[in-house]
């Protein structure tokens, strides 16, 4: 028996804070059955698992929750929620806790990915470079693969039916990986377009815990798609 918690006066500040932000949190419903921990690949990391996470909240052990780096091992994958008899979404609670961590104490690269996203995309490649890389690669295909001489990679085509997002990783480090998808879309013959701004298919602001960042990046992209008049947003992952 390692610890002693004095609960002579129970204080559950953190739990209440989360419950305020997440009305469907249902932390108190937990039956401590362990089903979540049974199914979670992150169980045991940092001596934590989804059930303990809930239990510490219930017992008001806020410091443990605020300090554990397990919140960066929980991938918010919701496998626990999928089968939990009480339907508790531990990932949703972890998200809130991530957001409570002061920005300066967060993992630097994760926060940076989101900050870059807010400026344009998650790798920070300038939009002009993206446009240039797409054109450059397309040109190369036209030259080297005669059977694809009519391949297209439309950019900012107003009125196209489909909008295609693009994970920033490819234009940044492996641009040739963009080509197969262009070829498929070309073979099918749909009317699609990229956008030269807010084109990133990933969104790391989902993982920092700041809803306003997530909202901002999602909204800017949505406005862009609506401005282009596309009726279908194709998510590439």
């Amino acid at each position: 028996m390692s610890e002693n918690y004095n609960l002579s006066k129970l204080r559950t500040r953190l739990k209440k804070q989360i419950e305020q932000a997440v009305p469907e949190a249902r932390i108190d419903y937990c039956l401590t059955c362990g089903l979540c921990a049974s199914g979670c690949p992150a169980s045991g990391i940092e001596d934590m698992d989804p059930r303990k996470f809930l239990r510490y909240l219930v017992l008001g052990q806020d410091d443990i929750i605020l300090q554990t780096n397990w919140i960066y091992s929980c991938s918010l994958c919701q496998r626990c929620k999928y089968a939990c008899p009480m339907g508790i979404d531990v990932g949703r609670l972890v998200y809130e806790v991530k957001g409570m961590r002061p920005v300066e104490d967060r993992p630097k690269n994760l926060q940076k990915s989101c900050d870059l996203q807010k400026a344009g995309n998650s790798t920070g490649i300038p939009n002009d470079d993206f446009v240039w890389v797409v054109g450059d690669i397309l040109e190369e295909i036209h030259e080297t693969e005669p059977e694809w001489s009519d391949l297209k990679a439309p950019m900012d085509k107003v009125g196209a039916k489909f909008y295609l997002n693009q994970n920033a990783k490819e234009p940044t480090v492996e641009p040739e990986e963009m080509v197969p998808l262009w070829k498929i879309l070309h073979a099918v013959g749909i009317d699609w377009t990229y956008s030269s701004k807010w084109w990133d298919g990933a969104n790391y602001c989902l993982f920092t815990g700041d809803p306003e960042d997530w909202e901002l990046t999602t909204r800017l992209q949505a406005e862009t798609v609506d401005d282009l008049g596309c009726t279908t947003y194709i998510n590439t992952e």
Binding site: M1, E3, S8, T32, K52, R55
Partner: peptide, 11 residues
């Protein structure tokens, strides 16, 4: 408490 393996004191 068996879940967090800790002693709890109540008054």
């Amino acid at each position: 408490d068996p879940i967090v393996d800790a002693e709890i004191t109540l008054q």
